[in-house]
Design a protein around this nucleic acid. Structure first.
Lengths: 150, 150
DNA sequence: ATATTTGCAAAGAGTTTGCATCATA
DNA sequence: TATGATGCAAACTCTTTGCAAATAT
């Protein structure tokens, strides 16, 4: 759960983004943003949708999809595809750049996700940019470990 | 396109794997394996399926899915989820461990994939293993760069 | 006022499943 | 010959789309 100051700050960022892109400041977009920043780890669209409903805020799932895509473009969420079929999201602003160690059970299901940060990734990024002449926007690094069920 | 010796070798690996797992040595499994090793880069299920049909080998798409999953468990292919909806595969044996720089166009579509290899990843892996006590099986690292359409 | 955003339901894409048939061991 | 594998089509799941109604600017 993000601190209230953080929530205020990301709301301001969204406001600026919407203004710049000439998009509308709708209550749905802000309620979804708040809800995203109340999440602690990774979540999928359906989970977020159900929590919004549980909190008495009726939005359609299509709007949740649209808004998450918008927040992605605004740089306020991160999107992960570590399991096929379902995309996972997490809040991005001020959580720092980090990578993921994904612990699977013996059936290949995600059991736990550990976050870590290693400066060597940044060094690799810079070298790659120098080598290719391209500007690298971001990266995803996933290590996979298998842990027996017990 | 893999050399004939490589193809022979992976067929032997598959044979051993099937024997060990008490699974059947079907022509479909071997034809799909061959076709996979004739692919040069990343491919999706539908592309592989169409190429098999174009080569006069009739298999159902379900079998292609099943077999790719089997080859994944046998360590003979690698699976990637860099775009939502569609899984991509690539041959794995003897191609060396490498990572991916994904170049997107301004609409976010995959334009080009550049492979690279950096020993620092291996160093991070070893440190993580030491730190967590887990055995890390593999990893996926994707850097993303955006290139204008033209 | 007007054009974007929403909600709903239906369509779409990729993947998985169920069941009868086939074929490997 | 007995069980695992295949083929086909239908089912499933997640996501996107189309259109009418609502609403922000």
């Amino acid at each position: 759960m993000a601190k209230p100051e953080i929530i205020e700050m990301v709301k301001q960022i969204l406001t600026k983004y919407l203004r710049k892109q000439k998009l509308r400041k709708t209550p749905e977009r802000f309620r979804i943003l708040e809800r995203v920043y109340e999440e602690d780890g990774h979540f999928d669209v359906d989970t977020l949708y159900k929590k919004l409903k549980a909190n008495g805020f009726m939005v359609s799932k299509a709007t949740v999809y649209n808004t998450l895509e918008l927040l992605l473009h605004a740089g306020l969420v991160r999107k992960h595809l570590f399991s096929p079929q379902t995309a996972f999201y997490e809040k991005k602003f001020f959580t720092g750049s980090h990578d993921h160690l994904i612990i699977l059970d013996d059936e290949g299901q995600v059991k736990k996700i550990v976050e870590f940060c290693d400066p060597r990734i940044e060094a690799i990024r810079k070298d790659l940019e120098k080598h290719t002449g391209l500007s690298i926007e971001n990266h995803d690094l996933y290590f996979y470990a298998i842990d027996q069920k017990r």
